[in-house]
């Protein structure tokens, strides 16, 4: 019957297949060279952590790699200039002779700093990832329920997070970590302490967004065709705020890496295994020696620095890419 849409001729004939908002955002993100490079760095860290997890490298971090001397300097600062026969070596050969585990020197027990740094990636990334997931798992549902249901439920949740956020953040984390380390094994205490104390910001963010979205027409439309409340929250509203969860995640992740370092520095970190934080903690004694031992500190700091830099830049680019208002800026 009906005349087949007058609007068809006006439409561009090109878009054959629908592009989702996520695809769109990804295409925008990909245009940023620097952000892409940072994404590769993050990927590299993740890959290293995964390999360490599988036990292929750095599993023997606790074995001394030298017997002669504590605090072996990073190998590239004292190259061997001649081989056993006394023949002079070219620079290239000199570098090649260095055993990789000695690249960053050793600590007081003769353990390889490189191995410890690699192993530390495992701890730091695990802690940051699990703590982030935990705080998302608490913050998003709480925020969504508070925002959507309103009323008494909202008041209780707001009261809860206001109370929690009125306690100075780090003291709260410390208190939790202190209590939990008696009960939970290893790094579990660390990420649980971080996770359960830091969902407030995300919860507040999600609550605000859900408040905004629940009055949108598409929610009304979903109600009208008979969708239940839980379906509306989970299938309609949460996907519309999920980009916020992702950007928040990237920034939160950095925060957790730092928090783990600080907790470890304060002696509340993992006890048996090296992490970047425990390495820096050890370094505070090493620096006071004469001559001072700086390489453990340098390795751990560099590891934290590059990862947080990459996460920050990539997270920033991601936020821009996901914001439709900035579509034409990048």
């Amino acid at each position: 019957m009906t005349s087949t849409d007058t609007d068809t001729p006006l439409r561009s004939p090109i878009p054959a297949k629908g592009r989702s908002l996520w695809t769109d955002a990804w295409l925008r993100f990909r245009r940023r060279k620097l952000a892409m490079a940072m994404l590769w760095i993050i990927g590299l860290y993740a890959l290293l952590a995964a390999i360490v997890f599988s036990g292929l490298i750095a599993a023997d971090w606790d074995q001394p790699v030298v017997t002669s001397e504590f605090y072996e300097r990073p190998a590239w600062s004292r190259l061997v200039v001649a081989d056993a026969q006394g023949n002079a070596l070219t620079k290239n050969e000199q570098y090649r002779k260095i055993a990789p585990e000695l690249w960053f020197g050793t600590d007081i027990f003769g353990q390889s700093v490189l191995r410890k740094t690699l192993y530390g990636a495992r701890i730091s990334l695990t802690v940051a990832l699990l703590a982030s997931l935990l705080s998302i798992a608490i913050g998003v549902p709480m925020g969504a329920i508070a925002g959507y249901c309103g009323g008494l439920v909202d008041e209780i949740i707001v009261w809860l997070y206001s109370t929690l956020s009125s306690i100075p953040g780090f003291l709260l984390i410390l208190a939790f970590a202190f209590v939990l380390r008696e009960r939970l094994p290893g790094i579990t205490a660390v990420y649980v302490a971080l996770g359960v104390t830091s969902w407030v910001g995300l919860c507040r963010l999600i609550r605000g967004e859900v408040l905004k979205h629940k009055n949108r027409d598409y929610v009304a439309a979903a109600k009208v065709y008979g969708a239940s409340q839980s379906r509306i929250i989970l299938r309609h509203i949460v996907p519309n705020v999920s980009h916020l969860i992702l950007t928040d995640f990237s920034l939160r992740f950095v925060g957790f890496i730092h928090a783990e370092v600080i907790l470890s520095y304060l002696g509340l970190g993992p006890k048996e295994e090296p992490s970047w934080g425990t390495m820096i903690n050890e370094a505070k004694l090493e620096l006071t020696r004469n001559p001072s031992v700086w390489w453990q500190l340098a390795a751990a700091t560099a590891a934290v620095l590059f990862l947080s830099l990459a996460l920050n830049i990539a997270g920033d680019a991601m936020r821009d890419a996901l914001d439709p208002k900035l579509k034409h800026v990048a």
Binding site: A221, A222, V224, G226
Partner: peptide
């Protein structure tokens, strides 16, 4: 009943569909 026996359409078609 909603959507099944009684359905409803709104004024604003631009925002009544979920963008995601």
């Amino acid at each position: 009943v909603r959507g099944n026996q009684i359905a409803m359409i709104f004024q604003e078609p631009m925002t009544s569909l979920n963008p995601v």
